[in-house]
């Protein structure tokens, strides 16, 4: 019974993510309007056949802008989490397989990074690297490193004393080979779970940075930037706050649900094993 429910969560999450991915794919081939074309005579249009979600303060088509923004959101989410998880995995694995001093230094470094509120770390890095899309990617990737380092550390530590690892060691396999060839496959499911959930939070951070004017720069479109740009007009035309906010929630919710459902099913499998 509960298994069915978990699958429902997973299916719901997958549907939400598929919606966003399809929007993204379509946006490469077809856009109803030029997302950056300003048309001052058509400002603040309500949704219509011509403009599905209406137009913004510059008369730009909101629907087209949302479609284009999905490219940035998914790109930033995927690239930053991939980078962050890879570095984190290496760092965590090194910490778990080394002893004494090196281990405790590495773990203190990871602890130190964990003490940074995500947005603070990202803002600090943006201050150093400068505003912009790719710098936001790097900032978010660095934010993801300790999350994955912590997780890989405990996962590798769990596996380290298992017989199959000892067997590999007795054959003279190198540290790197043991980690990537033997341990990695067993901990991969947990990492993938974290990966999915992290994409959600990466997209949230990206939108927050863009909202603060530190991420994607105009005239490019990003959901966070769209909200920021329309901010002063929302008091008179509240509708502007909704399209980009709702698509943002759909995306983050989708990735979070997938991560949660995978995690639940793994916990259950371990408990019943």
């Amino acid at each position: 019974m509960s298994k069915l429910k978990d699958n429902k969560l997973l299916v719901f999450g997958l549907i939400l993510v598929m919606i966003v991915i399809s929007i993204c794919v379509v946006s490469f081939f077809y856009l109803p309007h030029d997302p950056n074309a300003m048309n001052t005579s058509d400002r603040f249009q309500s949704p219509s056949i011509e403009y599905l979600l209406g137009t913004d303060q510059f008369g730009r088509d909101i629907f087209s802008r949302i479609m284009v923004s999905s490219q940035y959101a998914l790109l930033i989410g995927l690239v930053s989490v991939t980078l962050g998880s890879f570095l984190g995995l290496i760092l965590g694995a090194i910490a778990a397989t080394s002893k004494g001093f090196v281990q405790s230094i590495l773990m203190r470094i990871i602890d130190g990074f964990m003490a940074f509120p995500g947005i603070l770390l990202a803002m600090m890095l943006v201050a150093v690297l400068g505003k912009g899309l790719w710098n936001a990617v790097i900032a978010i990737a660095i934010f993801m490193v300790p999350v994955f380092a912590r997780l890989s550390y405990s996962l590798v530590l769990d596996q380290k004393n298992n017989l199959y690892v000892k067997a590999a060691k007795s054959y003279g396999a190198s540290k790197g080979r043991i980690i990537f060839k033997h341990i990695l496959p067993t901990i991969l499911p947990r990492l993938i779970t974290q990966f999915s959930a992290s994409i959600g939070s990466a997209i949230l951070i990206e939108s927050s940075l863009s909202f603060l004017g530190l991420g994607v720069q105009p005239p490019d479109a990003s959901w966070g930037l769209m909200l920021s740009e329309s901010r002063q007009y929302t008091l008179t035309y509240p509708f502007l706050a909704f399209p980009s906010g709702i698509i943002l929630i759909i995306t983050v919710l989708g990735f979070n649900l997938i991560g949660d459902a995978l995690n639940d099913s793994m916990v259950k499998r371990r408990a019943s094993a």
Partner: peptide, 29 residues
């Protein structure tokens, strides 16, 4: 719980501001 996790705080702030402060006038803008 899920909705709370997925909702960007800056967006919620914006919506609340529009609704409760500007719309209903319950709070200062």
């Amino acid at each position: 719980m899920q909705l709370g996790d997925a909702m960007p705080q800056f967006w919620l702030a914006l919506v609340f501001l529009v609704f409760f402060s500007a719309g209903l006038g319950w709070f200062p803008v």
